[in-house]
Design a protein around this nucleic acid. Structure first.
Lengths: 134, 134
DNA sequence: TAATTCTGTAATCTTTATTATTACAGTACA
DNA sequence: TGTACTGTAATAATAAAGATTACAGAATTA
């Protein structure tokens, strides 16, 4: 439903929780996607201060803090900008009493749903996730 | 993020909570999308027993029960089949210790996240939503 | 019973989103 | 200075979403 970028971000952070200084090419070969996509995802994670990257020869990325402190809520927020539930693409008919209000209704639904989702995601750290699946 | 079908389904049910026997064409003109898309969405809602439809002349759709009993969790489940969080499209590298486990990890994350989301959505009925935005 | 007005669904086309790829400048190390 | 990385822009390929057309079937009503 939601696109695969969340899974990709989690995959990256899991790899980095096990080893420092991994190259985008190495990471890409584990996820089996293009290294440029990895670098884009790394870029988002870096902006959110979840990872650090060294450029140049022998460069690569590492976690910026303990995997215990990185939660899936952090990852979610770093990965997505748009609200969870989109509006319909076409503008509803404003002369219909429902059409005129549906946008606001969806915003309210989205706010509540997203808050509930993030609360749950906040309770799952990368460390916990890795141990659980170990 | 998630596609607009959830918003469309909510829009439909909101309209039907105010008036019975609405045609797909009428509904489509409020949402401002193609009537065939409305009929497809109605088909899903009908399979979930949320609405009933009369075919033929003067036909149309109506709620199958009180809008107080229809929750957004019902709507969500009727609207989507796939899990909330997709896996990455490409199969991860099975010779990597993370690649081999990421699928299971994502399934666990998804189950927890989806449960939290549905719990919240269950607390919002169509009636409540309409009154709130009124 | 025939015309009318709905629905249901398949098939196809268009548009948008996602992912892949290419290209190349910049950085750090040896 | 050569090598091996990153960052990012631009473009191409692929997949998903949505729109449209088409038509058979159902119920009403004239």
């Amino acid at each position: 439903m939601i696109n695969g970028r969340f899974a990709i971000a989690i995959h990256i952070l899991t790899l980095l929780s096990m080893e420092d200084g991994l190259s985008s090419e190495y990471i890409a070969s584990s996820i089996n996607i293009n290294p440029v996509l990895v670098r884009k995802e790394l870029s988002r994670l870096r902006k959110a201060n979840l990872i650090e990257t060294r450029e140049g020869k022998n460069g690569g990325s590492s976690l910026a803090c303990s995997p215990r402190k990185i939660t899936l809520a952090d990852v979610y927020k770093a990965t997505y900008e748009q609200p969870l539930f989109n509006h319909s693409r076409s503008k509803p008919n404003p002369s219909c009493p429902v059409g005129i209000r549906i946008g606001k209704m969806m915003d309210e639904v989205n706010d509540e749903a997203e808050a509930a989702l993030l609360k749950k995601l906040k309770s799952i750290s990368i460390e916990k996730l890795v141990k659980q699946a170990g």
